[in-house]
Write a protein that binds this DNA or RNA. Structure first.
Length: 523
RNA sequence: GCGCCUGUAGCUCAAUCGGAUAGAGCAACGGAUUUCUAAUCCGUAGGUUGGGGGUUCGAUUCCCUCCAGGCGCGCCA
């Protein structure tokens, strides 16, 4: 990684400085730059340019072909062409994780209805993060948590029972805070045909039904989980009682109004939280803390949860619970994936699973190709709101940038097939010194930035820069392709270029794979 | 009221930890193919980065304030 090498170089010279390496704008000389001179000058009171000149003289490495100081104090490094060309031979190996074990829990939709579009965004983000982490030396696993106990599944079962009554023409009333979606009618029919009528049994059947449905939907979306953990498992392991005992012993609970409160305010929450209601029912928080204790005891170095924005108020109390058990708060990191707003007919749709007004991922995938959806979700940072206009989705899908990227790949594969027809195979030892055009080097530099993009993704735990990177890489290829031929009369030059574009295709393929998008050989 | 997120070209969005003259795509207009895929490329046009103040050598980025929008604030999850 070139950026890292430059960083190490400067860190050796200035061990106390936090070295930041940036890219140089296209109209300036050089490839990478640092603002180090500004930082030092602001402390010493010198002119940044003077400091920059001094630093520039000290930095020497075969990697650097030239060092240019730009007023008012930027130091730009031009990377040696030989180094750039030699880098093409190196396989992509990035170790940022050192085998660190990471568990990402995401989607975790309640088994009370289909997966909706908002959940799908989290699925795209989480799955991509897993892939990137595993590519960069972490050992990352994906987990899906199922709330198969508690009030929501009670309401589900009762709602289904009432739908059955309705089907039979009996008097039926779905509870106001129950599930009113029409998707339960078919399920009610199925439950009834199996002769199931007791609420507890309905619950069990319905929960399993939705878990299977979620598995299938996610599989169609290209997302697979290593573990499916049920809330009931957490109870069976006795972890809920254990957590309750610990919290009680530490004096972190108290009784008030017939309910048991957890002293969440001691951990920065705005108020203490009920963990056992006056009806002697556990709130979600208690088994959830227990569930996280389970995760921790399975030996992970880092836990990551991806939640929707409606849960942000929940962060303090959960992390509070984890700290209360004696762990540090940096063990867990919670990513809030901002909302997806659905638009139809120019108007926003208010989505609610309980009211039954939402669009499911299955419905979306029936309309829009998976590749387009996944790419689209990752063109926004996690923290950005995202508008999904269903009317325009189809139209937008046609000129979606994902095709721009895939097309570059397909073009290259076509070139490679063409070369083979002409008797030109991909050389193992190409004469890369024949590469000398500006467009060729722009493409080459773009390829070499890939690991740096992954480094950014890991640092911010946000995969969206990959899509922008791939568009840029594809663009650099298309520019090159437009101006120069790969397969021509000069076999050595053709071989070198074939090597370069093949590396491009590999990088595109790697990148698309990291965001769960396919890579067609022909388009 | 409190908390979180957002406001950048006509539209959808970038701008990497505070860097250099704020960039792409779409839409509009004008061009490019005897040769490896035209789902491509070139050109033209498009901006008071919501307003104001502050910190800084430097602010789309950080702080304050105001305006506008979304979401959350339960003994539901």
């Amino acid at each position: 990684m070139i950026r890292q090498r430059l960083r190490n170089l400067l860190t050796k010279l200035y061990p106390d400085e936090d070295i930041v390496i940036d890219y140089v704008p296209k109209d300036k000389k050089g490839d990478y730059s640092t603002n180090l001179a500004f930082k030092i000058a602001s402390r010493t009171g010198e002119k940044p340019e003077t400091v920059a000149e001094r630093i520039a003289k000290k930095v020497k490495d075969p990697l650097i072909a030239d060092t240019i100081v730009y007023p008012p104090g930027f130091i730009n490094f031009e990377i040696s062409k030989k180094f750039l060309l030699d880098s093409l031979f190196e396989p992509l190996e990035i170790n940022l994780g050192n085998g660190k074990k990471v568990l990402i829990e995401f989607v975790s939709v309640n088994p009370t209805g289909p997966i909706n579009i908002v959940n799908a965004r989290a699925a795209a983000i989480g799955d991509s993060l897993i892939r990137v982490l595993n590519k960069t030396g972490f050992k990352a696993e994906a987990e899906y948590y199922i709330n198969d106990q508690g009030r929501q599944t009670d309401l589900l079962a009762i709602s289904i029972r009432e739908r059955i009554n309705q089907l039979k023409g009996k008097k039926a009333k779905i509870p106001e805070d129950g599930y009113h979606g029409e998707y339960l009618i078919d399920l009610a029919r199925e439950v009834d045909s199996k002769g199931i009528s007791e609420v507890e049994e309905i619950r069990r059947f319905a929960v399993n039904h939705f878990i299977n449905e979620h598995k299938n939907t996610l599989k169609n979306f290209g997302v697979e989980f290593d573990y499916w953990i049920r809330e009931s498992d957490v109870y069976q392991k006795g972890l809920v009682d254990k957590v309750l005992k610990i919290l009680n012993e530490k004096g972190l609970t108290y009784n008030k109004d017939n309910a048991l409160f957890f002293r969440a305010t001691q951990f920065g929450d705005t108020e203490d939280r009920v963990i056992i209601t006056s009806q002697k029912r556990h709130t979600y928080l208690l088994p959830d803390i227990a569930y996280h204790l389970d995760k921790i005891s399975r030996g992970y170095d880092q836990l990551i949860n991806i939640w929707g924005p409606d849960h942000h108020g929940y962060i303090k109390r959960l992390i509070g619970g984890i700290i209360a058990l004696g762990y540090t708060n940096d063990l867990i990191k919670i990513i809030i994936a901002q909302e997806v707003k659905l638009k139809r007919g120019g108007e926003y749709i208010k989505m609610s699973k309980r009211a039954g007004t939402f669009t499911s991922l299955d419905q979306l995938l029936a309309e829009i190709p998976k590749d387009v959806v996944r790419f689209f979700f990752l063109t926004r940072s996690c923290s950005q709101h995202l508008d999904f206009d269903l009317d325009l989705a189809r139209k937008q899908s046609e000129d979606n940038p994902v095709y721009y990227v895939q097309y570059a790949y397909a073009r290259i594969r076509s070139i490679i097939r063409f070369a083979r027809e002409k008797g030109l195979e991909l050389p193992e030892t190409p004469e890369l010194s024949l590469i000398d055009k500006e467009e060729e080097f722009d493409l080459l530099k773009s390829i070499l930035r890939f690991p740096e993009v992954l480094e950014d993704v890991v640092r911010n735990l946000d995969p969206y820069p990959i899509t922008y990177y791939l568009i840029d890489l594809a663009r650099n290829f298309h520019y090159f392709y437009q101006k120069y031929r790969v397969v021509g009369d000069d076999r050595k030059l053709s071989g070198a270029r074939l090597f370069l574009v093949n590396k491009t295709a590999q990088t595109i393929s790697d990148g698309l794979n990291l965001i769960g998008v396919s890579c067609p050989e022909r388009m």
